[in-house]
């Protein structure tokens, strides 16, 4: 960094900065592992939740649990690495559902292919706990990314994959592909996306509109 630029940064007055409502919003980053891709047939194997306030990740308050499914599908092991013996001592969804709901309640859900996770939760709550679950506010980091790119004049017609977005933000975590790690990386990405959204004066209403997604495949 050149000398001039540096002194400009030091001189920058932050006091007068307008605080965006995005900085105060409570978010919850979510990631699931499932026995397959069909919410009608498949079940949840693991849930990871990481709360955030604005750009602060409350890493210490993360939540992670394995869940014992009714029917284990061996084919999915290669995607998530979770074995039947891992989940056999784990609680059933009915046992953790209440806590999960409390952690999510009132917060904006953030994820990668968030709608997919929401579908699974909806089904699980409905079938296993006879509860209605339909979160109003959620956003998908792939959609946010596509919006940010469009703002820069780049049209996106395909779905951005997770690794590409990670690369865009210079995030290189070595541990991946368990729900908790992926949720953490999603949080790190989202943190930076918020900062860019604020640059465009986006509000929480904009975020929910931008981050919404109609299909999950």
């Amino acid at each position: 960094m050149g000398g001039n630029e540096l002194s400009e940064v030091i001189e920058l007055e932050t006091e007068s900065e307008m605080e965006s409502d995005l900085e105060k919003t409570e978010f919850c980053v979510i990631d699931l592992e499932t026995t397959g891709l069909n919410p009608k047939k498949d079940e949840i194997l693991a849930i990871a939740l990481i709360p955030m306030t604005g750009m602060r990740i409350h890493a210490g308050k993360h939540y992670y649990t394995l869940i014992k499914p009714k029917k284990f599908r061996y084919k999915s092991i290669e995607f998530h690495g979770i074995c039947p013996s891992d989940v056999s001592p784990a609680p059933a969804f009915e046992e953790v559902g209440k806590e999960v709901l409390e952690l999510i309640e009132g917060k904006v859900l953030i994820g990668f292919a968030t709608l997919f996770d929401i579908e699974f939760l909806k089904r699980s709550f409905k079938e296993k706990m006879k509860k209605k679950f339909s979160p109003e506010r959620y956003a998908d980091i792939a959609e946010i990314e596509a919006w940010l790119l469009r703002k820069k004049g780049i049209a996106i017609t395909y779905r951005l994959d997770f690794d590409t977005i990670m690369k865009t933000y210079g995030i290189s975590e070595t541990t991946r592909h368990d729900a908790l790690s992926d949720a953490y990386i999603t949080a790190r990405i989202f943190q930076k996306q918020i900062s860019r959204l604020i640059d465009y004066n986006a509000t929480i209403f904009d975020l929910v509109r931008i981050g919404r997604r109609l299909f999950y495949f």
Partner: peptide, 15 residues
């Protein structure tokens, strides 16, 4: 140590 840890993002110039 991590039990109470936060991960924060600060934009250039932010105090």
């Amino acid at each position: 140590l991590l039990d109470d840890m936060e991960v924060s993002f600060y934009k250039a110039g932010k105090t």
